[in-house]
Design a protein around this nucleic acid. Structure first.
Length: 893
RNA sequence: GCCCGGGUGGCGGAAUGGCAGACGCUGAGGACUUAAAAUCCUCCGGGGAUUUUUCCUCAUGUGGGUUCGACUCCCACCCCGGGCACCA
């Protein structure tokens, strides 16, 4: 017998798997013979389907053990499911468009396509070296026209429905990427997700958006259906990101009836409607505010506008301090260019010189401009209620605004009925129906719900009830309405770079914006652009690309020169795996409806919002297009921990990567796979340790030696099946083996505790070693059964080694034809058990009894135990707790 | 500030209300060997008593609680990691 030689074994079996097309999924729809696509070659034998997927990689840099951990987890799941009789779809592809390719190409004077395709080749080589069970026929690469054509097709469908639209807006610009970023790509309060040391700048640029906000409510609601299948924290992060606030809009009239000349601003449209309802008065300027606490409106001591609110400039006109105010406003607008600064800046603001009228009580409220009010959120204007909002409190404190109290803590009302507070507001507390002539000044902020006070008719109401009633009243009287506001913004997808999907739109001087007709898709990326990495879109410098005839009138026109965010590519790629060669449509619905939703998706937590939110959005759009029959693409999500070295995640820039290929060359793929599964539970971060890898390597050698030693004598094709009585030694081995099988099955199927599954198998291996010499008292058939169980249980994790061992045991069929072994509860049963004896909950002894022994018998034995007897001597037995085969607890006093 | 995780030996980690520390790593000792590597075996949380054996006791971030019994459930707090954050 030779030594364990992973290099030889792994190459041998990878070749066999490929020859036998072991990992190709079976047909996805009923065989009708009409499907030409090459992926339908195998017959579906009515197995249940299982779609397991790891997030597709961006092919750049080195493929390191961090990637490998991700793919190993997915591969174990895929292999277990195949052994359990599922028709498994387990594909792989490349997220091949993107900025790093373009930057690398500029640096190395090559083409992004060359750079990308070389990386893909290398990635393929490494993944194949690890023996992952992918259906390579379905491989996709998002930078190929066959793929990105459908990005364009989807874009056109969204354009038709108004989901894709273009607008000029303030966007995030990364000076290093030289392109616009989506809100989701701005991290750590204002930094670029690619350049974490680079502040994002605000720029006003015209760009394309996808209306994710149209699905805000659904994206939020459907999170409920993901509970249990997705990690709580991912759901929480998405919920947070969508940020739903239920509240109300209220219109405050501006005192002095400033004529509104034009009402172009979006926020003023609703006002017109409302005014139409009660149109006795002349046109009055009104300010629309949003609040979640309409119940505090009697405590409003100012209206504060965002500096760039459209009304701000207009209101300043004609005020005594106009010139001075305008200067301040200009200054304030400039100072908020950097998004990161907004969050940390000190509160600043100024009084405009004008007043608004509180529609609830007619109170005159000064109108201010404040730097902390965001135009993008709500209506860009707020009412300041200093007593009940921390920011307003701070602002009021700085500028000397009053802080009237309008909500009282529930407790304080009840408890102060008797206590004598020495403040001058004693009457206020003694009654719940205080009227508005009394105002107390807050000395600290109270933001919780309570009981309304000093709020006219609404005094005495609980906050929740007050909010409902006041919003309803505002609506009825025409100066407000209930309103739901989301934090989520539309997804800006325009990128001023080359290596992405061209946006299929043409601008004609006569016909305006004209979509590229479907028949003209794909709009191909020009082959040899000038790439500088600076300034404008590279596509704009290519006259052949830019100059085009208008599809409508045939006249001269220009193409859109921006490309799409690469997150578009990854938003629907997993659908394409179901029908990768389709040239008539992105996919055939029947195929997708067979495989979807994805049963198990596995990837890093980094994509908790970006990719996973966009994918959910895309799914809902496709559903509304009638292409698919489900609303959520991913049923279960697993976020694996990172592989770290020296406490930080492996990355090229940190210089701490352990290359996957190096690992495979030194120890073999199976050891690498086993180690990443054994070293930590899959959801936790894993600290790379060279010493621990040695342990996994030793274990596989130990298994190999153990089976090699016995294989010849127990081969399935050679050994005689001896009859006769089963020996105690045999019983013990079979018992341990089946107990292990029970737990390993459970760990694989329900808990994903691969580390403890491996520990169990190690224990079994140790037990077999301890039973040596096996030739004595263990018949070949029993020996074989135990050794086969070890082989089969390891198979999903160390597939090459297991195939080799399986063959050594005399099998010629290949493990891929073998089902997961059946657990035999009879064999796992213990004859004799060691029971713990406790006295008052503390362990005082142990007794060995036959399994199933009843309480009375155990109690008798326990009382005879020296340790136990000592602790119950002279005491009365109050109670006896008995758990069969496990424990006896004598409660003595 | 809000929302998620997490806190167990020298280390990675086990333990689905029932013997805390499985399994592995490191370390120590032994066997084999001329020697080394490999392999195999034994020991390895703290304190105390007894010193061949065993027993007692403390211990799962801290403090309470529920329970015959708590790493596990409940309450409060501390610390670490992550996400969001003038979002009205």
């Amino acid at each position: 017998m030779g030594d364990y030689n992973p290099q030889a074994i792994e190459a041998k079996w990878q070749k066999r798997w490929e020859e036998n097309r072991v990992f190709e999924s079976e047909a996805d729809v009923e065989e009708v013979g009409s499907h030409q696509s090459t992926v339908d070659s195998k017959k579906n034998k009515k197995k249940p389907k299982y779609y397991v997927l790891e997030m597709l990689p961006y092919p750049s840099g080195t493929l390191h053990m961090g990637h490998m951990r991700n793919y190993t987890i997915g591969d174990v799941v895929a292999r277990v499911k195949r052994m359990r009789g599922f028709n498994v779809l387990h594909p792989m592809g490349w997220d091949a468009f993107g900025l790093p390719a373009e930057n690398a190409a500029i640096k190395n004077h090559t083409h992004p396509r060359t750079w990308t395709n070389n990386n893909i080749k290398e990635f393929q080589r490494v993944l194949r070296r690890f023996g992952f069970s992918y259906d390579w026929r379905r491989e996709i690469s998002t930078c190929e026209p066959e793929y990105y054509k459908w990005n364009q097709w989807f874009f056109l469908r969204m354009l038709e429905r108004g989901i894709a639209y273009k607008k000029k807006s303030r966007v995030n610009w990364c000076p290093k990427c030289c392109t616009v970023l989506a809100n989701e790509q701005v991290v750590n309060g204002g930094y670029c997700w690619r350049h974490e040391d680079t502040l994002v700048e605000a720029r006003d640029i015209e760009q394309w958006f996808l209306k994710t906000t149209a699905y805000a409510e659904q994206l939020l609601d459907d999170l409920k259906t993901l509970e249990g299948g997705w990690p709580d924290r991912v759901i929480a992060m998405q919920r947070n990101w969508i940020g739903k606030s239920v509240g109300a809009k209220v219109w405050f009239e501006v005192e002095g009836a400033v004529a509104s000349l034009q009402s172009t601003a979006d926020s003023l449209k609703k006002r017109d409607n409302a005014e139409a309802q009660s149109s006795q008065e002349a046109e009055r300027e009104k300010i629309e505010i949003f609040t979640t606490r309409i119940d505090t409106i009697y405590g409003a001591s100012a209206i504060i506008l965002a500096p760039n609110h459209p009304l701000a400039t207009r209101l300043l006109a004609g005020t005594p301090e106009q010139a001075k105010s305008e200067a301040k406003l200009t200054l304030m607008k400039q100072s908020s260019v950097k998004i990161a600064d907004i969050a940390t800046a000190e509160k600043d603001g100024f009084f405009t010189g004008r007043y608004a009228l509180n529609p609830f009580n007619g109170a005159k409220v000064p109108i201010w401009v404040g730097n902390f009010v965001l135009l993008e959120y709500g209506t860009g204007a707020i009412m300041a209620v200093p007593a009940h909002d921390e920011r307003d409190f701070e602002f009021a404190a700085k500028f000397g605004l009053p802080k009237p109290v309008v909500v009282k803590k529930v407790d304080s009302l009840q408890s102060t009925a008797h206590s004598q507070e020495k403040k001058d507001n004693a009457e206020a507390q003694s009654s719940q129906s205080v009227e508005g002539d009394y105002v107390s000044e807050a000395d600290e902020v109270f933001t919780e719900y309570g009981i309304s006070v000093n709020s006219g008719l609404y005094s005495g109401l609980e906050s929740a009830a007050a909010i409902d009633l006041m919003a309803a009243d505002a609506q009825a009287k025409g100066f407000g309405q209930k309103e739901v506001v989301f934090r989520l913004r539309d997804w800006g997808i325009s990128r001023q770079r080359y290596w992405g999907t061209p946006i299929p739109v043409i601008y004609c001087p006569k016909d305006g914006m004209v979509p590229v007709p479907d028949a003209d898709l794909p709009v191909l990326l020009p082959a040899n652009p000038k790439l500088t990495g600076e300034g404008e879109s590279p596509l704009a410098t290519d006259p052949e690309f830019v100059n085009v005839k208008c599809p409508k009138c045939g006249g001269d026109a220009r193409r859109e020169t921006d490309t799409m965010d690469t997150f578009v590519d990854s938003s629907w790629y997993f659908y394409r795996y179901c029908d990768p060669c389709n040239d008539k449509a992105p996919f055939e619905s029947a195929k997708v409806n067979y495989w979807f939703p994805i049963d198990q998706y596995i990837g890093g937590i980094t994509h908790a919002i970006l990719h996973l939110l966009y994918s959910r959005f895309w799914c809902k759009v496709m559903r509304d297009l009638g292409m698919i029959n489900h609303s959520e693409p991913i049923q279960r999500l697993f976020t694996q921990g990172m592989v770290q070295k020296g406490g930080v995640a492996m990355s090229k820039s940190k210089g701490n990567v352990v290359g996957a290929i190096d690992m495979a060359e030194k120890y073999g793929a199976d050891t690498g796979r086993l180690y990443t599964l054994f070293a930590a539970p899959p959801e936790k971060d894993l600290e790379w340790s060279e010493e621990s890898i040695e342990g996994s390597w030793r274990f596989l050698n130990r298994v190999y030696r153990m089976i090699a030693k016995h294989a010849d004598k127990v081969r399935v094709d050679g050994s005689p099946e001896s009859g006769g009585e089963i020996s105690e030694k045999e019983k013990g081995l079979l018992r341990k083996a089946h107990q292990t099988l029970r737990r390993v099955t459970q760990d694989f199927e329900t808990r994903w505790h691969f580390n403890s599954a491996i520990a169990q198998i190690m224990e079994l291996t140790n037990a077999i070693y301890a039973a040596e010499p096996l030739d004595e008292g263990v018949r070949p058939a029993v020996r074989r059964e135990v050794l086969e169980l070890v082989t089969l249980m390891l198979a999903p994790m160390t597939p090459h080694l297991s195939e080799e061992l399986w063959e050594m045991l005399g099998h010629t069929n290949g493990l891929w034809t073998v089902s997961w072994p059946a657990f035999n509860p009879e064999l796992a049963k213990e004859d004799e058990v060691e029971m713990v004896v406790q006295v008052s909950g503390r362990v005082r002894g142990k007794v060995k009894v036959a399994a199933g022994t009843e309480q009375e018998e155990v109690l008798k034995l326990a009382q005879a135990e020296a340790g136990v007897a000592g602790h119950i001597a002279g005491k009365r037995i109050v109670k006896v707790i008995f758990v069969k085969d496990k424990l006896l607890n004598i409660v003595a006093a």
